[in-house]
Design a protein around this nucleic acid. Structure first.
Lengths: 221, 221
DNA sequence: GTCTATACGATGATAGAC
DNA sequence: GTCTATCATCGTATAGAC
């Protein structure tokens, strides 16, 4: 349990993260996993309770520092904005939401893990997993929403929530499948540099969230 | 195989669609599935080859008419625009992309199936599934991209592709989890009427795709 | 061609000895 | 905490009846 401990538990977590990401969850058997980790088959069920709970633990370990970074960034933005008497910038808030996820792909094992992330909504009902995900995101949301309300005061709450929902979807899809993007491009080379992608994503979502405010297109059928 | 035939094959497809959507793919055993369909266990492997291939067939059957609707709508928009000498409207093109998916939820069994859809990136690499999905979407893309280029001529191709990618992500996330949206809302009731959602989605994505064109926000760090 | 009964190997989980 | 042995269940394959 201690940080530097190559204990059975952390050993399992490390190997599980790698194998789940490489081969997928269902395709990774506990026998192969425990053999690769050099531990006994029964150790997974002893330490985690089930294979699915092990997956939860893998996600939890990755998500925790990521959401802590988000919280710190939002707090810094809001504090800084309050000091100047202005609302926090929309681009800054979106950066806070997106950057930790995109930067995770630069960490060792991070890219594979990010892909695993995106493949989450599968299998069973994944209800436990969704629940863990939302619980962790709770603190982020509770800071993000008030900040966004300051920044976009003209939006009613429903509209704001939906637009944040769409923005998260754009992020999720970006993490999930550069494959689809490359296919969209029909073989053309396409820029996938991380900072450029982040800029594009922020521009798209910022414009989407501001929709209707700066210039209103004429209504049609 | 004929439309009205309650044959073993269509019987399996019908029950599979329902059970996969209700319980998830992994959680639905072929034994339970074939028992519910009143067919023999081996019938699945005889008619479809494997459990995964059955899932493919379920998706394929739903996706085919959906993409045909999209193609017809895009063609109509482009034809109509050409007649007036104008580019097709961005909102119209996005409507074409989104509406058939949202309206699928109104068909019997459609909502559950839409959720299953979104849970696609599961298990193994899901490579076969992704491949089927992209193959079907091919004809849509090949009409959508030229139309979008007419409508947004100021965007370079990379930017256009990325923005379409983001828009598809917003759609996918919308179909996938109203659960997350409701959680975002923290218990507040939130409008989830289909036409309203469609309008919100179109407004968000249209603004995102036009980002930088109509009015330019000042650049910051 | 279609359907059935049955068997096989592998899986996730568990009980109990140490 | 760790191990071995064992269990029910899974997806799949096949042999043979209609």
């Amino acid at each position: 349990m201690t940080p530097l401990d190559p204990s059975t538990k952390t050993q399992i977590l490390d190997v599980a993260e790698r194998l789940f990401a490489e081969q997928g969850f269902a395709a990774t058997s506990l026998r192969a996993l425990t053999a690769a980790a050099g531990v006994n088959l029964a150790a997974v069920n002893y330490h985690f309770g089930s294979k699915e709970a092990l997956l939860l633990a893998v996600f939890d370990r990755r998500l925790r520092p990521l959401n802590e970074r988000r919280i710190a960034s939002i707090d810094a933005l809001v504090r800084q904005a309050a000091a100047t008497g202005l609302a926090p910038s929309l681009e800054g808030l979106l950066d806070t939401l997106f950057r930790p996820v995109l930067e995770m792909t630069a960490e060792p094992g991070g890219e594979a893990c990010a892909r695993l992330f995106a493949r989450v909504h599968l299998e069973t009902e994944a209800e436990a997993l969704e629940s863990m995900f939302l619980t962790q995101f709770c603190a982020v949301r509770d800071r993000m929403l008030p900040a966004l309300k300051q920044t976009l005061p003209e939006l009613d709450e429903d509209e704001l929530l939906w637009r944040l929902h769409f923005a998260i979807g754009a992020l999720a899809h970006t993490m999930q499948s550069t494959i689809r993007l490359k296919w969209l491009a029909r073989g053309r080379a396409i820029e996938t540099d991380r900072e450029t992608t982040l800029r594009r994503l922020i521009e798209f979502c910022a414009a989407g969230m501001r929709a209707g405010a700066p210039s209103r297109p004429p209504e049609g059928t």
